[in-house]
Amino acid sequence: MNFYAIRAIYLFELARTWRTLMQSIATPVISTSLYFVVFGSAIGSSMVQIHGIDYAAFIVPGLVMLALLTESISNAAFGIYMPKYSGTIYEVLSAPISSFEIVVGYVGAAATKSVILGLIIMLTARLFVTFEIEHPLWMLLFLVLTAVTFSLFGFIVGIWADGWEKLQIVPALIVTPLTFLGGSFYSISMLPPVWQKITLFNPVVYLISAFRWCFYGVSDVNVAVSLGMTLLFLGGCLAIVFWMFKTGYRLKS
């Protein structure tokens, strides 16, 4: 293992976060705060409880997930797209490191950033709403697992993207809709029966459901199933990444 190389990539990527602290941390925190003000305080106060949970508290796990998913994807995608775009990728490709080490460096940095962000958003939420976390260790596990999985997904997007537009398309056109329709703001048991079935094809449903279980002990889907689905998605992303490196897809001619 070339630990110096992993460390170099990891620290280099995190340094970018500190340099762009405003965009990296402040932007998602502000936008999440707006959700809490609008949906939590303003609208939420006149909503009924869901599964015996106040509406404002009910949406906390979903909002954390929303930020976690979009930030993981865009951070990791940007992290690998940028050197491809500027040409500095030549150095990474010519270095004595395996594709596994490259992935650990880039995805590790993106996931670290997302986890920190997720925790900051939870603290921010606590300023607006009172909530308890029933299973804190499971919560942390799901937080890290989701951050890693979707950073990996973002890494794939970053390698696949051959223009700035494509970099934006996946988070904007796929992930945000899936998160909104994945039960961030409602329980899927509130949907008509047909849509309850269809919605199970949305992977984000499992993430939000499991995350909400960590907070309040109630879930739309069995937690074991959620964990299984998350791991399945993680495995799928890993397989794609290694295929990309093996074939040199959009990295090497």
């Binding site: 500027s86 270095a95 004595p96």
Partner: peptide, 23 residues
Amino acid sequence: ELFNDAFESVWATVKFSRGLFGK
């Protein structure tokens, strides 16, 4: 070609290269 991380400092980029090559 002059491929550079435009926003990095000279010192940071050289340190990065050394680490990347396992030193």
